[in-house]
């Protein structure tokens, strides 16, 4: 892997000759995003001004400033979130860096960004293994759509990523369901995060009852 990168996506989207850059799912990473939204992003002011010349470290500055997730808003303008997703597809950060983003506790929008990228770029079994632990994160997220703002949660967003075909106005790469992967012995059956809660739910009810009497 080369030690330098381009400040923008111009070279990676050059259609003259064969593409010989890094690939994801054996294709140009930037093509994982549909042409229309990709071009809207590249024409947007955020991409030209804020997302220009970023690398995996300086991308954090922008990710920390994110206020909402989403694909397009208002008059089909791309959100900063989706611009940064395209930027990450261009940067193609290493696995360790992505895990660093994902495991950070302080910035929830950074986590959402990393989760979205992982869903786009990684093989199915790993996506399930990496993202499922995040279902324990119940923090609120702001989702901006064409119609306005909506409230969602990190775990809800992760669930959308694992089960839906379109999230944030992007068609996600096809992925076998969890059940299929379990049948192929690529995944262990999932341990529910609330399984141990159910077991000792009786005790909790008892405790709550006592509190109520006081």
């Amino acid at each position: 892997m080369s030690r330098t990168i381009a400040p923008d996506a111009k070279a990676m989207l050059d259609t003259r000759g064969l593409y010989d850059g890094p690939t994801i799912h054996s294709m140009n990473p930037l093509l994982l995003m549909e042409k229309i939204i990709r071009e809207r992003i590249i024409d947007s002011m955020y991409w030209k001004e804020q997302a220009w010349g970023l690398n995996a470290a300086t991308l954090l500055d922008r990710a920390v400033d994110l206020q909402y997730i989403g694909g397009q808003y208002a008059n089909q303008k791309p959100t900063a979130f989706i611009c940064l997703v395209l930027k990450m597809l261009q940067l193609n950060p290493e696995r360790e860096i992505l895990l660093e983003y994902l495991q950070d506790e302080d910035f929830k929008y950074l986590r959402a960004l990393a989760a979205f990228y992982i869903r786009l770029a990684w093989p199915a079994a790993e996506v399930y293994k990496t993202l499922e632990p995040l279902m324990a994160d119940y923090r609120k997220l702001r989702l901006r759509t064409q119609a306005g703002f909506k409230l969602t949660f990190v775990d809800e967003f992760i669930d959308d990523l694992l089960t839906k075909e379109r999230v944030c106005d992007i068609a996600l790469p096809r992925m076998p369901t969890r059940a299929q992967l379990e049948d192929m012995d690529e995944l262990e059956p999932r341990e529910s995060l609330v399984s141990d809660v159910e077991e000792d739910s009786d005790e909790e009810v008892g405790e709550e009852g006592e509190v109520g009497e006081d």
Binding site: T4, A6, P7, T58, E94
Partner: peptide, 23 residues
């Protein structure tokens, strides 16, 4: 020149620590 230095894991960690401190 129109090239950007590729960030290493250390650079990312450092930056993240700095941002956390700033917050």
């Amino acid at each position: 020149t129109d090239i950007v230095e590729r960030a290493t894991l250390e650079m990312v960690r450092e930056r993240l620590q700095w941002l956390k401190q700033r917050k």
